[in-house]
Design a protein around this nucleic acid. Structure first.
Length: 216
DNA sequence: AAGCGGATCGTCT
DNA sequence: GACGATCCGCTTG
């Protein structure tokens, strides 16, 4: 902090996992299904009151643009979904069912509205805080972040707080990082909870993870 | 173990 | 005015 000659990472919050590096903008440039696969095994880092909450992504879904009836971008740009039409690597947070938030990472270049829904994490640090935010006992880690609404609650992600934030900014309170972990296998299934294009295989999971929103 | 309904409100028709 | 990229608790088997 006080030194400028230190060659170590310059961002303000040293990562709990020392060798992790923030994801760069070009990571989010490819099509949503490519990014959804690539995000499996990556870290989400959330800074809350100086505490570092982290989790490893174990489940994602790809949503496309004007050609995907299940996507929020399908009907074109609106006030709600405008982040999707902007530059890649930004958080699109929406409010659903009057009660829950869901976190997406925008991808593809500006003007193309692809995104990846983050559906489940393996919690790695800050589990006590996550449990408090979830209002559940800390003794059930597999219930903390095993669903898109749960993980937003566990990380205190809301639309007001996080929509539009830059997920490549390591000085921000929410960003993505790579600690070198690579999933041994990846499984693909249809997306969950949608009525249109319900058979399209665009859900990606690390098989047999205990932290999926649903088992395979 | 699986299925059902209630909660609850921003967004778009 | 209807619905939804969800979650939880209760019921049934």
């Amino acid at each position: 902090m006080e030194h400028h000659q230190n060659p170590q990472p310059q961002y303000q919050h040293a990562l709990l996992t020392p060798l992790a590096t923030p994801l760069q903008r070009d990571f989010f440039l490819p099509a949503p299904d490519r990014v959804a696969r690539a995000l499996l095994g990556k870290l989400i880092v959330r800074i809350l009151d100086g505490e570092q909450l982290t989790g490893r992504i174990v489940e994602t879904e790809a949503y496309f643009g004007l050609d995907d009836p299940a996507a929020h971008a399908y009907a074109g740009e609106t006030a709600r979904n405008r982040i999707l039409f902007g530059p890649p690597g930004h958080a699109y947070v929406y409010f659903i069912y009057g009660m829950h938030y869901c976190l997406n990472a925008s991808c593809e270049p500006s003007g193309h509205a692809g995104c990846v829904l983050i559906r489940a994490l393996e919690p790695l640090s800050g589990l006590a805080t996550m449990a408090r935010l979830r209002r559940q006992p800390a003794s059930r880690p597999h219930l903390l972040t095993s669903g898109p609404g749960k993980l937003c609650q566990a990380l205190a992600i809301t639309r007001a707080d996080s929509n539009g934030s830059d997920l490549t900014d390591p000085n921000a309170s929410l960003f993505f990082a790579d600690d070198g972990f690579r999933p041994a296998q990846i499984a693909v299934t249809p997306r969950i909870g949608i009525s249109k294009a319900a058979d399209h295989p665009a859900r990606f999971v690390i098989p047999h993870s205990k932290f999926l929103s649903r088992a395979l």
